[in-house]
Every structure is written in structure tokens, then in C-alpha cells.
Design a protein around this nucleic acid. Structure first.
Lengths: 159, 159
DNA sequence: TATTGTTATACTCTATAACTATA
DNA sequence: TATAGTTATAGAGTATAACAATA
């Protein structure tokens, strides 16, 4: 691990770390978005580990809470999940007692998703941790800049 | 498919789409980042399909081009890939004749990655398509706003 | 002994096809 | 026939363990 020498014959000294040209990636929005998203996901698992909740869980429970009765198909398209993959998650959540499925009365093919009291409590506790979590992830930005970022993202992918 | 009725007994009319409350997600930076990143990935596959290049390919070839001799371990940590997973990709690229592996002379455990002429040509062609691609992805933003977004992202995940 | 690269393997996430029950 | 939900399954992406060669 000692690096007393570090000769640089060709103008390259990768052994000493750094001296890397990363400007190409820094100017690539898609790559930087991916890095930022990975940071948020890793940070999420740290901050919410005790609740056993994932980013997907958080989004799913939030949507159902704010839109009781939402059907799985709508939920899937909102979250950009394929319906079969969402169904598997919903099965787990129903087994865990977080959500409930109701058959729609108007169209009995349809399903209405609802939170159970347990699910309501869970997303309530999670919501309490979101502010400190987001603040930690965005610590490098001023409050105004944080709002700017959110606004720009909402313009890029309108909901 | 006809929706002449649409009765709204409980103030909910999800059958008619919309009327959904999505403010919770719109205020969630991590979720919006994920949506934006998915948009960029999908758009990438559309724009670069003819070159048979993926977002990962693009990043890998770019880094090697700008930093000839970069070792796999450095590349992996930059791209947030586990080394074994990167190795598989590098094996494919070497089979395809896009990159070359040199044993390092100073430390013969090490590998120096280089682009072949074929790899150089490929990333060259890809680079020509990046501006229109990025412009299309960020069409909702002014040029100034595009620069702002990039700057904020670089502050959140410094390279 | 520690490190770089590599292989093999398991696990998670995502995508596709087909089946059911209603309409 | 078409649609919402569901199941089963295949594929891509990601993670962990162990080994070889070199330091």
C-alpha cells in the first residue's frame, strides 16, 4: 500500500488515483441522473431500514393513501412497473396486512386498493422520516436550489 | 370502452382517469429522479438503437477514451458497478473488438484498458448523436435551465 | 498477508406469454 | 371480442464467495 515512487512515464499516473478526465460524464445529464438516483436509493435503505420499507413500498403506499380505491393498473403505470410485477408486490403487502383488495362493484373485474390501519400507520411513520432524509441527500444544495431541482424534474417528467 | 355514465358516488372517479392526487410523489426528489432517469434510459435505447449501444456502453467507452489505460477497478467504482459485473461486460467488448486489455508493466496484476480503432469509431459516432438526444430529453427546459440542472446534479453527486 | 482481476453463482428486478373472470 | 387482474416464467441487472496471479 506504500506509494513512494509513482513514476509517470507517459503522463498517466492512474496508480495514484485521480488525474482522471471525467468531464465527458459530468456533462452527460443521463449519467448524472443515474448517479443521483443511486445515491437516493442507497440513502433510502439506510434511513428507512428500521421500517423495512423500500423506495417502491414508499411510493405504492403513498399513492394508495392519497387515492384510496386506485386500481392496480393505474398504480403500475404511475410507477412505471409492469402490472405482473406490481401484482407480486401487492400480494406480499396484502399478506403482510398492509393493504386490502376490494372487488369493484361497478365492474367486477376491477380491484380497488386500500390501506389497512397497519399500512396507514407504516406510511405515517415513514413520512415522518422523509424530511430529514431528503435534507441529507440534498445537503449540497440551498433550499432555493432544492426547490429549483424539484421544479425542473417535474417539468422533465410531468405527472 | 364507452364511458357515458361515470357515476361518482364517493367523490372518486378513477375509472375516468385523472382526479388523482399525485402531489406526494411530485414533492419527492428521489421518485422524480427515478422517473427522469427512466425517461433518459428509454430515450437512449431509441436514439442509439442503430449503434447497438447501451447507456453503460456509452459510459464505459467514454471513460476509456478519455483515460486510456484506466484499470477495471477504477472504472467499476466510477460507474458504481461491482467489479465482477463489469468484467463480464469487458469480456464481451473485447470479444467484439471494441477494447483491448494490456497487462500493466509496473504491476503485472493490473490491467490497462484501451479502445481499439473499432471502439474509437463507435464512441465517435455515438458522441455525434448525444446533443440531439439530450436536447430531446430536456426539451421542456430552457438552455439556461438545462445548465442549471446539470450543475445541481454535479453538486449532489460530485465526480 | 493483501490486492487485482477473474469465475461461478445466487438474488433481485424487469419483461413476455398465457390464463381467468368479467364485460 | 376486449379488458383487468393474475400466474408462470424467462431475461437482465446486481450482489456475494472463492480462486489465481502477483505484490
Amino acid at each position: 500500500m506504500d506509494r513512494t515512487e509513482g513514476r509517470t512515464r507517459q503522463g498517466l499516473d492512474l496508480g495514484l488515483k485521480k488525474a482522471l478526465d471525467l468531464r465527458g460524464l459530468q456533462k452527460t445529464p443521463g449519467f448524472m441522473l443515474r448517479l443521483a438516483q443511486l445515491k437516493f436509493f442507497e440513502g433510502f435503505y439506510e434511513s428507512f431500514a428500521e421500517l423495512g420499507i423500500t423506495p417502491a413500498s414508499y411510493a405504492i403506499l403513498t399513492i394508495i393513501r392519497d387515492n384510496p380505491g386506485v386500481p392496480p393498473s393505474t398504480l403500475a403505470s404511475l410507477l412505471r412497473l409492469k402490472l405482473p410485477n406490481l401484482i407480486k408486490i401487492l400480494n406480499e403487502y396484502e399478506s403482510s396486512g398492509l393493504i386490502k383488495r376490494n372487488r369493484s362493484k361497478s365492474d367486477r373485474r376491477g380491484v380497488e386498493l386500500l390501506l389497512t390501519p397497519k399500512g396507514t400507520k407504516l406510511i405515517q411513520e415513514a413520512t415522518r422520516m422523509t424530511d430529514p432524509y431528503n435534507k441529507r441527500m440534498l445537503a449540497a444544495l440551498s433550499v432555493v436550489e432544492q426547490a429549483t431541482l424539484l421544479e425542473l424534474l417535474n417539468r422533465i417528467v410531468p405527472l
